[in-house]
């Protein structure tokens, strides 16, 4: 009786409650950035922000494919490093070799993703262990290859993906190439995840692999494709980062955890069964915005990691609460 009335009256409030708080957090952070950097709200500022966040967004969306089917891919950070270091070593400042090198690092990524997928689905190694092992091995390969210090140079035609910005674009004025890469990659992933049978199966496999198997779903194939997408996302992010920051042995460090954090912020359920590309993109931009704010107020990088750890816990704790309410 009265319950119905009050429910109707507070419907907008309840609707607000249903919005994931990471969007609210993103808004607050963006406002904070706008106050801290005067020209942020210009097309230039927004595009610079997107360019900074592009690689994390790409890896996070890749990670979504593995997380939604109940796994983890912790190898992406070292795969990014391998992509950057490997390209630098293979190209060695000879622009003619750029495209060969890009093809080769994608092949390496596909090989690594395929290997992880096979190990997880056929040898039944929990993906958290398998991908941690891959993290160690891939980092070892990158270090052994480069002899332990950054070597080689990346020519401009490689670095353009991370660095070049088109000017005089109508309406938005400027358009960094990395934002184009981001948009294309996210569009492809959104199609894969929301517009194909594969996407639906990924969620079902994350929910109950046994039931999926007994309904004729090729669970192993689904898992392998998931790891492939994640690996390809890491290589793509690596190519952007190589252009953005240049070769270094620690370019990829910590990306695996940031990608998981971005997913958690974006409403992906750990251990599978729920997630969306739009949510993850929002989650990764939230994280980028947060890092930007922490940077602007002068927090050293290690402390930014610490803040990230706290956020990870808080976000999962919140989503647990939220599920409790939904019951």
């Amino acid at each position: 009786m009265t319950a119905i009335g009050s429910a109707a009256r507070f419907a907008p409030v309840r609707l607000l409650g249903r919005i994931h708080p990471s969007y609210a957090a993103l808004l607050v952070l963006l406002i904070a950035i706008a106050f801290l950097t005067p020209n942020f709200l210009s097309p230039l500022g927004v595009m610079a922000f997107l360019r900074r966040g592009a690689s994390l967004a790409i890896v996070s969306v890749g990670q979504l494919f593995v997380l939604s089917m109940g796994g983890f891919d912790l190898s992406v950070g070292s795969l990014i490093t391998l992509a950057v270091m490997g390209s630098a070593l293979m190209i060695n400042n000879d622009p003619a070799l750029t495209w060969h090198a890009i093809a080769l690092v994608y092949l390496m990524g596909i090989g690594s993703g395929l290997f992880l997928g096979l190990v997880v689905s056929y040898l039944k190694v929990p993906s958290i262990i398998a991908s941690l092992g891959a993290l160690l091995s891939i980092k070892g390969v990158a270090l052994a290859w480069s002899g332990g210090s950054p070597q080689g140079y990346l020519p401009d035609n490689f670095r353009q993906f991370g660095r070049v910005t088109y000017h005089d674009v109508p309406i938005i004025q400027v358009l960094p190439m990395s934002v184009v890469v981001l948009a294309v990659f996210v569009a492809i992933c959104a199609w894969l995840f929301h517009g194909t049978t594969f996407g639906r199966l990924a969620l079902i496999v994350g929910d109950n692999p046994r039931a999926a198997d007994l309904a004729g779903v090729r669970v192993r194939l689904v898992r392998i494709v998931g790891f492939l997408v994640s690996a390809v996302s890491a290589v793509t992010a690596g190519i952007l980062l190589g252009g953005f920051a240049g070769p270094a042995q620690d370019v990829g460090d910590g990306f695996e955890l940031q990608a998981i954090a971005a997913n958690v912020l974006g409403g992906t359920q750990l251990l599978g069964g729920r997630g969306s590309v739009a949510g993850v993109v929002a989650g990764s931009l939230t994280l980028t915005a947060l890092f930007t704010v922490l940077n602007l107020i002068g927090l050293p990088k290690p402390l930014r990691d610490a803040v990230q750890g706290g956020i990870l816990i808080a976000a999962v704790a919140y989503s647990v609460r939220r599920q409790g309410w939904e019951k």
Binding site: I260, L270, P302, A306, Q308, G309, L312, I313, V316
Partner: peptide
């Protein structure tokens, strides 16, 4: 996994 990962990040930071 997340809880201890997070605590580890905070401590390491």
């Amino acid at each position: 996994l997340i809880a201890t990962l997070g605590v580890g990040l905070v401590l390491q930071g």
